[in-house]
Amino acid sequence: MTENAPSPLLSAPGAVATAEGRTAWHYGGPLTEQRAAVETGALFDRSDRDVLSVTGEARLTWLHSLSTQHLTSLKPHEGTETLILSPTGRVEHHANVYDDGATTWLDTEPGRGEALLKYLELMKFRTEVDLRDETAGWALFSFTGIARAADDAPVVQPVPIAKFASKDLLAVPTAVYPGGPFQEAAGWTRRTDALGVPTFDVLVPRGALAEAAEGAGAALAGTWAWDALRIAAKLPRFGIDTDEKTVPHEVPHWLAAAVHLDKGCYRGQETVAKVHHLGQPPRRLVMLHLDGTDEHPPAHGTPISLGDKEVGTIGTAVLHHELGQIALATVKRSAVAEPDVRLITGDQAASL
């Protein structure tokens, strides 16, 4: 898998690089950047994400058979999300999806594309599809608050209650993200509203990233701002806010946007059906408010305790411009049965 090179947007005034050194953590004012993203619009450099392409007439049917999402009816210039599960129903891969009518594009977390590509290659058998690592040639950015790419908003089907009738869920993707060609350069745009405000993803040739970002006409914002807004919207990062034990029902966003509960057989489907119909997941992904007694948010993996028992771990924690310190955390379901439960993580108290 090609490793992403440092983004040209790191040369922008005030840019402070992330620890990985590929994109900006912030551009000098992380809290101001958050506020701008919500109120007037901001552009987020997400060019560190891995990008794959799938071509061939059978691409959607083939991906449909492997993943949790209903993809056979995905129309040209529509997007969605999907998961690849283990045989026991654990989440092994998450990808955002976009089909432009000839190619299905998959973008996933930095460093996760190689494993996803290897899995898909192993599952080709005699299916006439072509898989490519597009990371070196294409880059993703997102922007908020500028509704010029599309007037249509995303559509997400409600998750039916347990023991639902099949007619309760339409035979289309559970989440449909409208999109279209990106007018300023080759590529496409996809509206997700992922941050709780109008949010658009744009894929462009990597060499055109700086020009396309400038043409979007929005102030730059770093990963600090992106994390703060996505945590407030309860949007997880695969492998950061989840772990190797995660099942789809533990993550409310994925259950709503990436899992179709009434489609053909795929690996791990038995676990999905069993948890949905017969029980509850052992854990939940929740948003925590931290009391701020420590000026530094807790690090990834910090244990969470209830009394003298460890009941979970911190995923991403960050300072939000209005909410203070907040975090996404995976916590035992029994520990968060009551909304006013008081938890401890590091030296701070936390509440739901």
Rank of each mutant, 00 (worst) to 15 (best):
L140D: 00
A15N: 01
G89S: 06
F238G: 10
T108Y: 05
W226G: 04
P281L: 04
A256R: 12
D308A: 08
L319R: 12
A350F: 00
A327D: 04
I326M: 07
G14W: 04
L63F: 05
T68Q: 09
R237W: 13
D347H: 00
H296A: 14
A219E: 12
D291S: 06
F200N: 09
L328D: 12
L328H: 04
D50S: 08
R333I: 03
R132S: 13
Q280W: 14
T192P: 01
T242H: 09
A225T: 09
E114V: 00
W254Y: 11
E109Y: 04
A12I: 09
L117H: 11
A115V: 02
Q280R: 14
N96E: 11
G301D: 08
F125Q: 07
G222H: 05
L328G: 10
K167Y: 07
G137F: 10
L235Q: 11
A219M: 13
F238A: 14
A102Y: 10
P6L: 00
A5C: 01
G101Y: 04
T189Q: 00
G111A: 04
V318T: 13
T199I: 06
Y27R: 00
L328F: 07
R35S: 13
R132A: 15
G79K: 08
I314Y: 02
V251G: 06
G137P: 07
H296I: 15
E338I: 01
P160A: 13
T108A: 03
A228L: 04
T82W: 03
P173Y: 15
A208M: 09
D241V: 09
R148Q: 14
A350C: 06
R112K: 15
L83M: 05
T127F: 04
R59I: 02
G145S: 10
P178R: 14
Q69G: 02
T104G: 01
L170V: 07
K167W: 13
G111C: 03
A349H: 14
P205D: 11
Y177G: 08
Q183H: 10
P160I: 11
G28N: 08
I326S: 10
P178Q: 11
H253C: 10
P282I: 05
G315D: 08
G217V: 04
V156M: 05
K163Q: 13
